[in-house]
């Protein structure tokens, strides 16, 4: 991991637009492949970083459709195997929960 970060930050080629850049990758937040590629060139090298930068995987489906794809794109741009790209943290709740449920929660009110 360390090795590829060094390689990535050291040899930075100019960003080249690609034909499929306008294609949506994150369906929920409508983030395109080009935006994700640009994020890597802006210095985002993990899925968490790209997520905080662009909101990929932060929409209603919580990254269920796009996370593999986002990881592949980051790996491709950095020319490293996909397994070396750290994946996003998992967080509770893992399904969308209406705020009213928390607001009315017995366990929360007791405190």
């Amino acid at each position: 991991m360390k090795e590829c970060v060094i390689r990535r930050t050291a040899a930075k080629e100019p960003f080249m637009a690609k034909l499929e850049d306008s294609m949506i990758v994150c369906r929920c937040e409508e983030i395109t492949k080009g935006e994700i590629r640009q994020a890597v060139y802006d210095g985002m090298m993990t899925m968490n970083e790209v997520k905080r930068y662009l909101r990929t995987g932060m929409g209603l489906c919580q990254g269920q459709s796009c996370s593999r794809k986002v990881r592949d794109i980051i790996a491709e741009e950095m020319s490293v195997p996909r397994e070396t790209i750290e994946i996003s943290s998992a967080r509770n709740p893992i399904r969308p929960v209406p705020m009213s449920i928390y607001a009315n929660d017995k366990a929360c009110k007791r405190r």
Binding site: I24, C28, E30, L60, C61, Q64
Partner: peptide, 22 residues
């Protein structure tokens, strides 16, 4: 229709996961 690009969406996963059909 989506918020940013106003593109049409419909059923995608049909099991309540993708939230595209909302």
């Amino acid at each position: 229709y989506t918020a940013k690009r106003a593109e049409p969406r419909g059923i995608f996963c049909a099991i309540g996961r993708c939230n595209d059909c909302v």
